[in-house]
């Protein structure tokens, strides 16, 4: 038989790639932790205002809710009494925290998604882009093996207190759905950035570099206007912030093609999101975007970063054993 005849074709190679190993396990774990904490922290901070924001107080929007795009979704939380509503609210916080620590990960991810959505549809008027990314990423995470790293499930499994998933379900099946989730989340993130940049290119204010000035001059999207108003009228800041966000979003797919530019993209976008979150008062949106971006950091990058940190600690004498080739982020 010739070598050409035994060489696998494109389809076989692709099938093998998506079924032989699980991609981005550390990235998925980071996304899971960050999203869980974002949901929990958001609900804890908003707890005093919960009744107005998602509870009985939000019923003023009933005529809009009943005819809007979410009208077909179960509205039982919106119509619940204060006790049941608060119970659901607390359950959502607990589910999100359990998801973050990775205990019964798949079930707590599903619970977080279902409970969060039942709160969300009670007040869809306050929906932001962050809510949309949050629900889609949570839905995709359910398909993934996001509890395989940085989780209590992984610890219990290593200690023999939990039966590994691969003993119950074929490994290729787990890998397939995990990798599908990675592709769906990564693609969604790319489309957020590319779509947003193309919308921005349709406006003179983004192209002439002044766009960021406008929302930062309103009271509603500028919580630090009294303290930082001077900065928002300073041309280099406004020009730099406007164009850098436009450019980095537009070229984002290209930056993903190379390991070093991917790192640059991740660092720049994280900085941009933190800046937007702080200056414009939309920290939830920023945290959700940073969490979703984490999927794009490959497992190799996590291991290299872990090795670099371990080496530095070894040089400082903080750890005794010399770092070897198998340093993992869990063994820092």
């Amino acid at each position: 038989m010739s070598a050409a005849a035994t060489r696998p074709g494109f389809v076989e190679t692709a099938v093998d790639a998506v079924t032989s190993s699980r991609w981005s396990l550390y990235g998925l774990a980071a996304t899971r932790i960050a999203l869980g904490l974002t949901v929990a922290v958001q609900l804890i901070i908003n707890a005093p205002d919960r009744g107005y924001t998602w509870g009985a107080g939000a019923r003023w929007g009933l005529p809009l809710r009943d005819t809007g795009v979410w009208a077909d979704w179960p509205m039982w939380v919106a119509d619940a009494g204060p006790v049941l509503f608060t119970t659901v609210y607390l359950a959502t916080i607990v589910a999100a925290l359990l998801m973050a620590v990775g205990l019964f990960t798949r079930w707590t991810t599903i619970a977080t998604l279902v409970l969060w959505m039942s709160l969300f549809v009670a007040a869809p008027l306050i929906e932001t882009g962050g809510d949309a990314i949050l629900r889609m990423t949570l839905a995709y995470l359910v398909l993934s093996d996001c509890g395989a790293r940085f989780s209590l499930d992984a610890r219990r499994e290593a200690a023999g207190r939990r039966r590994p998933l691969r003993e119950r379900i074929p490994g290729w099946w787990i890998a397939l759905w995990n990798n599908v989730a990675v592709v769906l989340i990564a693609h969604q993130i790319v489309m957020v950035y590319v779509g947003s940049s193309l919308w921005k290119l349709e406006s003179d204010r983004w192209v002439d570099g002044t766009a960021v000035y406008y929302p930062l001059s309103t009271e509603q999207f500028s919580p630090w206007l009294d303290q930082l108003g001077w900065l928002y009228g300073w041309a280099p800041f406004v020009l730099g912030a406007t164009w850098s966000s436009l450019v980095v979003q537009f070229v984002f797919p290209l930056l993903l093609l190379n390991r070093s530019t991917r790192l640059v993209a991740f660092v720049v976008l994280t900085g941009m999101h933190l800046g937007i979150g702080f200056l414009m008062g939309i920290m939830y949106f920023s945290m959700v975007m940073i969490a979703a971006d984490a999927v794009l950091v490959s497992d190799d990058s996590w291991r290299r970063a872990a090795r670099a940190v371990r080496t530095r600690r070894w040089r400082r004498g903080q750890v005794s054993d010399r770092p070897d080739a198998v340093v993992t982020p869990e063994r820092l």
């Binding site: 882009g129 949309a132 489309m191 957020v192 779509g195 947003s196 919308w199 921005k200 349709e202 406006s203 204010r205 983004w206 766009a211 960021v212 406008y214 929302p215 001059s217 309103t218 009271e219 509603q220 999207f221």
Partner: peptide
């Protein structure tokens, strides 16, 4: 899928 995010025209009034 609605990713206008302060685009095309950013918020310019309260």
């Amino acid at each position: 899928q609605d990713w206008r995010l302060f685009a095309p025209n950013p918020v310019a009034s309260d």
